[in-house]
Amino acid sequence: MEKTNIFQLINAIEQLNNGNIVLFTRKFSYPLGISPILVLAELKNKGPRKQIELAELVGLTKGALTNISTKLVDLSLVERLYEEEDRRTIRLKVTEKGLAALEEAQAIGNEIYTELFEAFSEEELNEYLRLQNKLIRSRLTNWA
């Protein structure tokens, strides 16, 4: 059996991820990718946040989060809250429309997840998740 190299593994993972992202963006009614959905989820779960806090929570650069927040504000999915004592301090807050968009995204995500993993038996799925988590845990120290 030919030894699989790191580039083959990365390519296989990228193909799977890219295919799922394309499928998601085709089904989702907003012109958004995965990162803005993660931002909406953080705002829903943790309440209004400064952009720098969101960038750290989601693992994005400040510049990327600035672009995402502008897009989310333009789509009325989040609003900017200015603090009265210091108008330079701005927090982002998810709107009702943003909550509805997040709900739609989660429904599509669940649908894609179900379609993707229906190829696995329950036992295979548990083993796949166990192996993924093992890889993640072993790499966390190297990613930091």
Rank of each mutant, 00 (worst) to 15 (best):
A12W: 01
I108M: 05
L81Q: 14
L32H: 01
I37V: 06
E85T: 13
A41E: 11
D86L: 06
A105Q: 00
E85K: 14
E103Q: 05
R137I: 10
G109Q: 06
V22L: 10
R80I: 10
I52M: 10
K62R: 11
N45I: 10
I68S: 00
P31C: 03
I52L: 10
G59D: 02
P31Q: 03
K44E: 08
Y30P: 04
E111K: 13
S138L: 11
N17Y: 08
A101C: 06
L102M: 00
G33R: 00
G98V: 02
L16V: 12
V73E: 07
L43G: 01
E104H: 04
R49E: 15
F24R: 04
A55F: 00
K97D: 04
N45R: 15
I13T: 15
V22D: 08
P48D: 07
E96R: 09
L54K: 03
N133W: 11
L9M: 09
L116W: 08
A101P: 02
Q15W: 01
L77N: 00
V39S: 03
L23W: 05
Q132P: 03
N11A: 15
L125N: 04
I34T: 10
K3G: 05
L75I: 02
L125M: 07
L129G: 05
N142A: 13
F7L: 15
L32F: 01
L32Y: 03
L102C: 02
L125G: 05
E127I: 10
E79N: 13
L75E: 04
A119W: 12
K44S: 03
K71F: 00
T61A: 06
E127A: 12
W143N: 09
G98P: 02
F120R: 07
N142V: 10
E53W: 03
F24L: 07
I52N: 09
F117L: 01
E123L: 12
V39Q: 03
E2A: 14
V94L: 07
L131W: 07
T66I: 08
E84S: 13
V94E: 02
A41F: 08
G33V: 01
L9Q: 09
A105R: 02
G33C: 03
V58Q: 00
E127H: 11
K93M: 06
V22I: 14
R91C: 07
L9V: 12
I21M: 08
P48E: 11
I21V: 14
T66P: 00
A12V: 05
F24Y: 05
V39M: 04
I136L: 11
A100W: 12
N11P: 06
E85I: 11
V22N: 08
K97N: 07
I10C: 06
E14I: 13
N133K: 13
L23P: 09
E123R: 11
E122Q: 15
S76A: 15
G109W: 04
E14D: 13
P36K: 00
K62P: 03
E127P: 02
V58H: 01
